[in-house]
């Protein structure tokens, strides 16, 4: 009973703030709505008993990732932040079918994932071990290959970032050294 009340509370707030992301015009309000959406999703995780995922949601999404959006957006001048008319209308209409395809793909992947995910086997696992241990043992047994593949992608991204961020040789005179 309490769980349902808490879930409905977080779920409705998630939806409300997600709507805010789409419909608000001031970009700072938009990023704040996004933040609130992420926090509320963490709340849903906590209600579901997935404390580790909830804490990671808070640590990685609401803090580590969203902070970069905030950092960039706070540097936007006030006149531009408060502008009402939107850009990229034609582009938006053109990308709509592609976006729709992506959403369909997400739904498809979700349904397939639900159909093959283990049912009830993890439950007794959780009772024996803690939340963190369960995630670790599943990640490093069943999904080990996918996990390694993802880390490879991250490594490529990191190397790319280093290459892009590298200083060009002798573009300016360094007077401090």
């Amino acid at each position: 009973m309490m769980q349902w009340v808490a879930f409905l509370f977080f779920a409705s707030l998630t939806l409300l703030s997600a709507l805010g992301v789409v419909f608000l015009s001031n970009i700072i309000y938009v990023i704040l709505s996004l933040l609130s959406t992420l926090v509320m999703v963490a709340g849903i995780f906590f209600v579901a008993g997935a404390e580790l995922v909830g804490a990671l949601q808070l640590l990685i999404y609401t803090v580590a990732i969203a902070v970069f959006y905030v950092l960039v957006l706070t540097a936007v001048p006030w006149e531009k932040a408060l502008k009402k008319d939107s850009h990229y209308r034609i582009e938006g209409v053109l990308t709509f079918p592609i976006l729709l395809a992506f959403y369909l793909e997400i739904i498809l992947v979700f349904l397939i994932g639900v159909s093959v995910s283990p049912k009830g086997q993890i439950r007794e696992f959780i009772q024996n071990l803690g939340n963190t241990q369960v995630v670790g043992s599943i990640l490093f047994s069943k999904y080990f290959f996918a996990f390694e593949l993802v880390s490879l992608v991250l490594l490529v991204g990191m190397i790319g970032a280093v290459l892009i961020g590298r200083k060009e040789d002798k573009t300016y005179e360094d007077s401090t050294s």
């Binding site: 404390e51 580790l52 804490a55 808070l58 640590l59 803690g130 939340n131 963190t132």
Partner: peptide
């Protein structure tokens, strides 16, 4: 059981 992660999430 993930108290420490919460500390750093909230702190930041």
């Amino acid at each position: 059981n993930v108290g420490l992660l919460l500390v750093f999430a909230l702190g930041s």
